[in-house]
Design a binder for these strands. Sequence first.
DNA 1: CTCGGAGTTGAAGCGCACTTCAACTCAAGG
DNA 2: CCTTGAGTTGAAGTGCGCTTCAACTCCGAG
Lengths: 152, 152
Amino acid sequence: MHEATLTIGQLAERSGVAPSALRYYERLGLIRAERTGGNQRRYARTELRRVAFIRISQQVGVSLEEIREALDSLPSGRTPTPDDWAALSRAWRERLDERIRLLGKLRDDLDGCIGCGCLSLQRCTLYNPGDVLAAEGAGARLMLPRPGADRA
Amino acid sequence: MHEATLTIGQLAERSGVAPSALRYYERLGLIRAERTGGNQRRYARTELRRVAFIRISQQVGVSLEEIREALDSLPSGRTPTPDDWAALSRAWRERLDERIRLLGKLRDDLDGCIGCGCLSLQRCTLYNPGDVLAAEGAGARLMLPRPGADRA
DNA sequence: CTCGGAGTTGAAGCGCACTTCAACTCAAGG
DNA sequence: CCTTGAGTTGAAGTGCGCTTCAACTCCGAG
């Protein structure tokens, strides 16, 4: 045990991500694996870091497709350095800030509306298109893109 | 025009929600409508406020099912007062605070990891089960419930 | 060599929040 | 009356992020 590579089960256990999810990530091109003679996946230990980055990015609210693009921007040829990872993380920082800012605004507005009890679409800042927490990735739109906005 | 009730098209325009979504909300029991002799929906103007509450709640990260439960808790019989709406809004306030808190923690941790470049699953506070932004509603789990957590 | 647990695949299913479609009816102006 | 735009329905489709399943193979301990 404690070999240079990990089986899918080992990677799953260490990362907390189900094997089915890891295979899914691979299909999307987010992680890679060598194969044994018997066609089984063997993961380099560096893949652990990739998986960590994926899960963290999801918490930031980034879609798997965008995460893939980010990972694709890592230097090919050499193993990514801590600096490489730091650069990617910095890229999410802005999104996270914006997300937090908008939720903070929502909270303030909600407080205001709790005070006045208005919840009026026309007057309340809560329902202000253009200041919407738009398409932050993640599944069936959490954040209210205007209807048809993705086709416009 | 400017009648006591709204057609589905009018409600859609005023609320910014597509007619198909409004019909969907009705099927889920989130809003109600009278019917004309010709079976067309006519919405009381108070439904505007319900729709506003629905969209705001979604921004907080609440699922339609939970929103339905919240709306069901409104007093039946009388038209909800501003105080009634304020009470519902207050109920989301805590969720919003928690959401903001966890995102803030994620940001701080991310800053720390940008500094050290670690992204290590084992050591990094970023990947700390139990402190995960769990099941905040909304579609295909944005916030990383542990695999199988919804079946456990 | 045998056995069982771990791995493989493609296809299908799930949950959420909707949208789209076809086929039809209604309502209002000319 | 006729047309046109708006409304009606149920069924099916969409996108994301997976999970589940069936049918099969691999690998290592005994």
